[in-house]
Design a protein around this nucleic acid. Structure first.
Lengths: 209, 209
DNA sequence: CCTACCGATCGGTAGG
DNA sequence: CCTACCGATCGGTAGG
């Protein structure tokens, strides 16, 4: 995850503004997740934050911009995870395991934003949609790239790499639907189990753990 | 899929009414799928059918009832598929394969209704929500039942049956997100490939095909 | 950054 | 008098 914390010295005012935007987005996401985008009124986001509606409209152009930011950020993460793992120059066997484990973990941690993104995709602005689709293509390309490489090296065996990429994505991503906080399993436990199921699905030959 | 075609002799009037309801639901689903529930106006559903809004309101109490019916029906199918397969009294190995294949196929065929259901769940009525949740529990119980039985019989090997059920469900269900009509693959091809990936994931010992 | 407010939209319904 | 519908309009509420 780049672009974090390495901006040039910001004025206090800028930091305060940034903090306000982040707070609004966090509360918006919370309400979009529990009540849906259309079921959420800007007034309710404001009152929950102890401010009024025009405060929100001072920081964001319209309701859609809140959704745009949440969805573009949520869809960027998976691709960033894969590229970060690739950047560490591990051997393919390790890279594959790390990639799947971290993807699974990230799905659990960001399940609210991912859910919002899937449900409300129809309502984002055209510009945000372009970003979102680019993010998804970037992720697809990165994941199918790792799978194909591992396949060539004889580490795994997948028939149709396109289908395998999508089915694997489903196995990993579905966590955002079924995972419940406070249950029997911690996110790390789920990630570990998803990893083992995924490796079996790919017919992995006993790779290093 | 029971409850079909064995109703007592219906008058022509009843059949016409039933046909009108079905036509409205089909058009509503089409528009909910492409534009979202809130993005669809009753007027547009009506005009697409060549009728007016009060025609819709004669057959349905309100907009939510359209969504309710689509979602309850869509969530009932998976459980019905599993119970139908179980009712055929195959040996477990055959039942497992048939169940997964038919689930995968049904996901592709009903992808529009499934997508609507996932996206718009927040907007269904409380009564419909109860049905929907009962449908999901029924499906979960049926699928994890087959997996546990196959595991006991030594046909497959899953660690945590709850997690395996959910991850398998994700692998199968994700088809509603990624499948595109008119692409390289027919629904039957996808179902076949999902089946093979699923069996590998479950560490199935060469079961009969 | 709030109070006060408008323009537009849309789900739902009464009369005939 | 009932059914199946249409033209017109209103109550309510959201974004801005």
């Amino acid at each position: 995850m780049p672009e974090q914390g390495r901006e040039p010295a910001r004025t206090m005012r800028e930091e305060v503004t940034s903090f306000k935007r982040a707070s609004i987005l966090r509360e918006a996401a919370r309400q979009f997740y529990t009540k849906g985008y259309d079921g959420t009124r800007i007034d309710e986001i404001a009152s929950e934050l102890g401010v009024t509606k025009p405060f929100i409209y001072y920081h964001f152009r319209n309701k859609t911009e809140l959704l745009d930011e949440i969805c573009v950020r949520a869809t960027a993460i998976s691709g960033e995870v894969l590229e970060a793992v690739a950047g560490r120059q591990h051997e393919t066997a390790v890279e594959l395991r790390e990639a799947i484990r971290l993807l699974a973990l990230q799905v659990i941690e960001n399940r609210a934003d991912i859910a919002i993104c899937f449900r409300e995709e129809k309502y984002i602005s055209p510009g945000a949609r372009q970003h979102l689709e680019a993010n998804r293509r970037r992720y697809d390309a990165a994941l199918s790239g790792v799978l194909k490489r591992a396949d060539r090296e004889g580490l795994i065996s997948v028939g149709d790499a396109q289908v395998a990429t999508q089915v694997l994505t489903g196995a990993i991503t579905w966590g955002f639907v079924w995972y419940r906080e406070g249950g029997r399993l911690q996110p790390e436990d789920v990630a570990e189990q998803v990893l083992e199921l995924a490796m079996a699905m790919l017919n992995a030959r006993d790779l290093p753990a």
